[in-house]
């Protein structure tokens, strides 16, 4: 697959503080790439460097295989941190300015306003918009040049559940159009729901990078419940059991590599136990994320 973004040993120091440290990363076309990390882990600084507003201390990156200039930025739609517009202009007028800077066709404005469902309020001044509308206008402005790649930094920050769901729907719709998206967030749930790939940053260092689907792979946990007094003992006899925890009368069996829930079920069945509850639990991104951060300590 074609590489859209390639980052090579990118570093940024603010005085003594190292905000981004020797970061290497690749994003390929069509990926929805989640950048995870606690607040202050260097996500926005990294995006700032990629978008030419922050000067890197060292290292380099290429967009579409070529060194970045302001022309490459025109092919990227980006919203960093909170939405930024001229407060005393209307949404429509702000988008016109954006389109002018990007050299985009202003006929797109109507279309992107439709996508983010702001057409009714386009003549109102930006000042009067609610936070959710501001975020949506920001996404519209990022889309106005019909970019190859979209960068969203905390697009649901500070929104109510409705607003979060709306933005998530918009992002999914855009991703379905085949656009590459880089989504920085500290909301793990959000990344798991919309992203195909993710990277974890901590104190400016890359801790992990890979497909979201891989998170569930590897050892799995099986929840078992059965009306049998010796279930705990029996479970320990099973060769595939790793650690076993009992929680609210339900046994949580961490399986060894290569063993799955059906193996456990078969084993119990042969022992004459019929389970009343058997569930395979894949690791959530949240768990993985905390693991990654914990390992780093």
């Amino acid at each position: 697959m074609e590489t859209v973004l390639s980052i090579n040993k990118l570093t940024k120091n603010f005085g003594k503080l190292c905000a981004v440290n020797q970061l290497d990363l690749e994003v390929k076309r069509g990926q929805v790439f989640g950048m995870l990390g606690p607040n202050g882990s260097g996500k926005t600084t990294t995006l700032g460097m990629l978008m030419g507003v922050t000067n890197p201390t060292s290292g380099s990156f290429t967009w579409f295989g070529e060194p970045a200039t302001h022309h490459t930025r025109k092919k990227i739609g980006a919203v960093l941190e909170h939405p930024i517009f001229y407060p005393y202009l209307s949404g429509q007028k702000n988008l016109e300015l954006n389109a002018m800077v990007k050299g985009a066709n202003s006929a797109n404005i109507e279309k992107v306003l439709d996508i983010v469902e702001l057409s009714d309020r386009k003549e109102d001044k930006y000042r009067t918009y609610s936070l959710g509308m501001k975020q949506r206008l920001a996404i519209a402005s990022a889309l106005v040049s019909d970019p190859i790649i979209l960068i969203l930094d905390e697009p649901t920050n500070g929104l109510d559940p409705m607003g979060i769901a709306e933005i998530r729907e918009i992002v999914k719709r855009i991703a379905a159009d085949g656009k590459t998206i880089i989504l920085a967030s500290h909301l793990l749930d959000e990344v798991q729901k919309v992203c195909t790939h993710f990277a974890v940053l901590r104190k400016g260092k890359l801790m992990h990078s890979g497909p979201v689907d891989d998170v569930g792979k590897g050892e799995e946990t099986v929840e078992v419940m059965a009306y049998h007094d010796d279930l705990g003992v029996l479970l320990q006899e099973f060769v595939g059991s790793g650690s076993i925890k009992k929680d609210n009368g339900i046994f949580q069996v961490m399986m060894k590599d290569g063993f799955h829930s059906q193996d456990l079920n078969k084993f119990l069945f042969e022992k004459g136990i019929i389970t009343s509850h058997l569930m395979t639990k894949k690791k959530s991104l949240e768990k993985k994320f905390l693991e990654i951060l914990f390992e780093a300590h």
Partner: peptide, 13 residues
């Protein structure tokens, strides 16, 4: 208003 920042992000040199 950080519009300078956004202008640069949008591709202004």
């Amino acid at each position: 208003y950080r519009t300078l920042r956004q202008n640069i992000i949008d591709g202004m040199s």
